[in-house]
């Protein structure tokens, strides 16, 4: 079993997806090892609850196995996973009672290590460093507005109210922020 996983470490995301859709469970396991941290960190950020984030992580990879929703010609697997995770996390967030939300904000979070291959971890973390570096290059307001929109699911009007800034200004910050971020990440995305 371990040999089979090792062979697949060198495969591209698309090769693994094709294999997975032919019923290859090891291919899914390899994709899990490659991207579970990305899915989990995003789920945890939005849900602020370790158990729910773990639950959602499993949900997302099960969806990858069961559904043809991901199509390689429409974008990277990485962006599909984060988009799906974000969407489901925000859905779950919205269906919570406000009392629960209050309690969860103060719950202790204990991140744990999983036994993923260090090679894959390095490659995810290399991307992470680039994205972190790119974000620090953004003007504060642009970064702030992007993060509020992405992680909190706030609309532009809600953000405008939250920051006490005009809607037009908020739109300008977020659009410029996205464009600047894209420019910073140009080499990474190619």
């Amino acid at each position: 079993m371990d040999e089979d996983i090792n062979r697949r470490l060198a495969w591209s995301d698309t090769e693994l997806v094709v294999a997975m859709r032919a019923g290859d469970a090891d291919a899914l396991a390899t994709l899990y090892d490659r991207y579970s941290s990305l899915v989990f960190r995003l789920a945890l950020k939005i849900l602020t609850n370790s158990e729910e984030a773990a639950d959602l992580t499993q949900d997302v990879f099960l969806n990858l196995w069961q559904s043809l929703a991901y199509q390689p010609d429409r974008g990277s697997l990485s962006s599909f996973l984060t988009t799906l995770t974000r969407s489901r996390a925000i859905d779950r967030l919205r269906s919570r009672s406000s009392k629960q939300r209050f309690l969860q904000r103060w719950s202790q979070l204990m991140p744990t290590q999983s036994a993923s291959n260090p090679f894959e971890a390095a490659s995810l973390e290399q991307r992470a460093e680039s994205v972190r570096a790119a974000l620090t290059q953004l003007p504060d307001k642009q970064r702030q507005v992007l993060e509020l929109a992405y992680y909190q699911g706030l609309s532009q009007s809600e953000i405008a109210a939250h920051l006490e800034a005009p809607l037009g200004t908020v739109k300008s910050w977020s659009r410029q922020g996205l464009l600047n971020l894209r420019n910073q990440l140009q080499t990474l995305l190619e």
């Binding site: 990305l38 960190r41 995003l42 945890l44 950020k45 974008g75 990277s76 990485s78 962006s79 599909f80 984060t82 988009t83 995770t85 974000r86 995810l124 991307r127 992470a128 680039s130 994205v131 972190r132 974000l135 992007l146 993060e147 992405y150 996205l178 971020l181 894209r182 990440l185 990474l188 995305l189």
Partner: peptide
């Protein structure tokens, strides 16, 4: 892709 890459920074 840029927007979807934001979570890498977490």
């Amino acid at each position: 892709e840029t927007l979807a890459a934001m979570p890498y920074a977490l």
